[in-house]
């Protein structure tokens, strides 16, 4: 057991070093997209943790990401904390929001929870217009600056800000997956699976169902908050427009495409989310389509994929295959 743990730690380190090394050999745009993928990986795995393992659904994770983003930016701007601390504050703030929401969520089942979180996703970002400190529709700018000298010097060459974003995002994403992976193997992970599998049996064996659900919601929200802070870093600002209902739907889509019970799938889901707009742009330019078409084609394709996935492989492509093999 111990051995396999250190082995997987080594694998994680190897992946990390490989990705960071890779950033030297691809152009700026790809580096930026790599950072986007890393942010999506965090957001999607927060949904996978919540939906796949604890059996709750959230259409409001975009709002929790907004909490994380705003908290990070505000603490960075007004308290002048280092940006990593600001990210942590963002995650904690979202966790607090998620804890309160989770208290309500634990009492709700499927569609009620979906509707409640949907109402949050619609309502919360518009709050930014009401408080002067949140910067209204324009939002607040966020600039974590260039990479520290000692990193930039060591790698040599020009160390652009996008590359620095990429490094930060990738390290956070790997740390997140590492954290969730271990959490799911711990007592909490087993508890969540028991509650999802059979709530009555879980309650009879002494599990406090409500508490377990609230905990899952809180942890998931913290990760969403981290993703929100990273997204703010990539965009260079936080604004209501960055955390729309579409964002909430997008990450749920990513999680479903990944197969909601498959943590490794979060990478697949994230890549799909970033690749689709790229792909449709190419198609639209090739066909010489109008702006109407190219703006809406990504949404169309992801929606169709989402519907097809949920009809034909509701438990994710991978798990579905395995089940067939067993039969």
């Amino acid at each position: 057991m111990r051995k396999s743990k250190s082995l997987s730690a080594l694998i994680f380190l190897a992946i990390g070093l490989f990705l960071l090394g890779l950033s030297n050999f691809v152009d700026e745009l790809r580096v930026y997209q790599g950072a986007q993928i890393a942010v999506y990986v965090i957001a999607i795995s927060s949904i996978i943790l919540l939906t796949g393992y604890s059996g709750q659904i959230s259409l409001g994770h975009g709002a929790l990401m907004a909490i994380g983003g705003y908290a990070a930016v505000l603490s960075y701007t007004y308290w002048h904390v280092p940006f990593l601390i600001a990210f942590t504050i963002g995650a904690l703030a979202a966790a607090l929001g998620g804890f309160i929401l989770g208290m309500a969520a634990a009492r709700l089942s499927g569609p009620y929870l979906a509707g409640t979180t949907l109402a949050l996703a619609v309502g919360l970002p518009s709050l930014a217009n009401q408080f002067h400190i949140l910067g209204g529709e324009q939002g607040l700018s966020f600039d974590i600056g260039e990479a520290p000298k000692w990193i930039a010097n060591k790698t040599g060459g020009d160390f652009t800000q996008y590359k620095w974003f990429f490094w930060v995002s990738v390290v956070c994403a790997l740390a997140t997956i590492w954290f969730i992976k271990n959490l799911l193997q711990s007592r909490f992970g087993r508890t969540w699976r028991a509650v999802r599998g059979n709530p009555s049996a879980a309650a009879l064996s002494g599990i406090n169902i409500g508490r377990s659900k609230v905990l899952a919601f809180t942890v998931s929200s913290a990760l969403a908050g981290l993703a929100g802070a990273l997204l703010a870093m990539l965009l260079g600002l936080v604004a209501p427009m960055a955390f729309t209902l579409t964002l909430s739907f997008t990450i749920v889509t990513g999680a479903v495409l990944a197969g909601v019970t498959n943590l490794a799938g979060s990478i697949v889901g994230a890549v799909v989310l970033v690749v689709i707009p790229e792909f449709t742009d190419a198609v639209a330019t090739h066909l010489g389509g109008s702006e109407k078409i190219s703006a809406n084609l990504p949404g169309l394709i992801t929606s169709v994929l989402l519907i097809l996935t949920v009809i034909f492989a509701p438990n994710g492509p991978k798990l579905h295959k395995r089940k067939k093999a067993n039969n």
Binding site: G55, T253, V256, P298, T302, S303, I307
Partner: peptide, 20 residues
């Protein structure tokens, strides 16, 4: 595991589809 939320997801997908 997702049978309970599958209809929610499907209707969301449909919402996205119609919007686009």
């Amino acid at each position: 595991s997702v049978s309970e939320i599958a209809p929610v997801i499907a209707t969301l997908g449909l919402l996205g589809l119609i919007r686009s």
